[in-house]
């Protein structure tokens, strides 16, 4: 019968924490790749491409991640592909991250003074060269603090994939709570674990912001 909280439960929570970190990294890397494409589309010279990218961002940012998660999860099922929950979770988080990162990075690229682009064009650099050698190196400096800040958002949002049965930290806490029902202790510990992951990133983002002295907002 249910006993108190013991070491085994703690190990189980740490395993969940590992999955949370892994899932966050997956979401960030693939979401970053997608976000880069979204950013390129948003600054494209073709109006239709800009429009489509904008609609994509508005739709993803206007629908809760939970619903995106359900649509991807059941959508994959309908397509007849049986996927482990990790794939559905990763895909949904990737879509979510790509829209937000695309918008953050577009802002950073547009924050680079226009004269830089104009000067580079005068030097007869191609459009890709202008972006790669002139704009992006400067935009990265501007983009770093909000991107690190968004990582916190990614870490927190991975908790939602617990609803499709993927056992990360939140799901692990739920499973343990269902066995021994000590919600304050278990969700408290899970909260501390999330805090231990997120708070350093928050601090880092704030330090970067101060160092690079980009006071936006």
């Amino acid at each position: 019968m249910p006993t108190g909280f013991n070491l085994n439960y703690l190990i189980y929570l740490f395993q969940g924490m590992g999955w949370t970190v892994l899932l966050s990294l997956l979401a960030f890397v693939f979401g970053g790749l997608g976000g880069f494409l979204v950013m390129l589309a948003r600054i494209s010279r073709i109006e239709a491409v800009r429009r489509i990218a904008n609609v994509y961002i508005q739709v993803v940012q206007g629908v809760p991640l939970l619903i995106i998660l359900f649509i991807v999860y059941f959508g994959l099922g309908i397509l007849g592909v049986s996927m482990p929950p990790l794939v559905a979770a990763g895909l949904a988080l990737m879509i979510y991250c790509s829209a937000f990162l695309g918008e953050i990075w577009r802002g950073s690229v547009e924050a680079v003074p226009r004269t830089q682009t104009e000067a580079a064009e005068c030097l007869a650099l191609t459009r890709w060269q202008v972006l790669r050698d002139v704009v992006l190196p400067q935009a990265i400096r501007i983009a770093t603090p909000p991107t690190v800040g968004f990582l916190v958002q990614v870490l927190k949002s991975t908790s939602l994939v617990s609803v499709i049965g993927f056992v990360e930290l939140t799901r692990a806490a739920q499973v343990i709570n269902n066995t021994i029902f000590q919600p304050f202790a278990i969700f408290g510990i899970a909260g501390v674990m999330y805090f231990a992951l997120c708070y350093p990133l928050s601090l880092w983002s704030r330090i970067l912001e101060r160092k690079l002295n980009v006071g936006r907002r």
Binding site: L160, A173, G191
Partner: peptide
Amino acid sequence: VEVVRNTPFLIQIFFLFFGLAS
């Protein structure tokens, strides 16, 4: 501010809802 902003909403809800129920 720091505690709320660095933990997921889902955990906050579970903590509050199940915690108060317990």
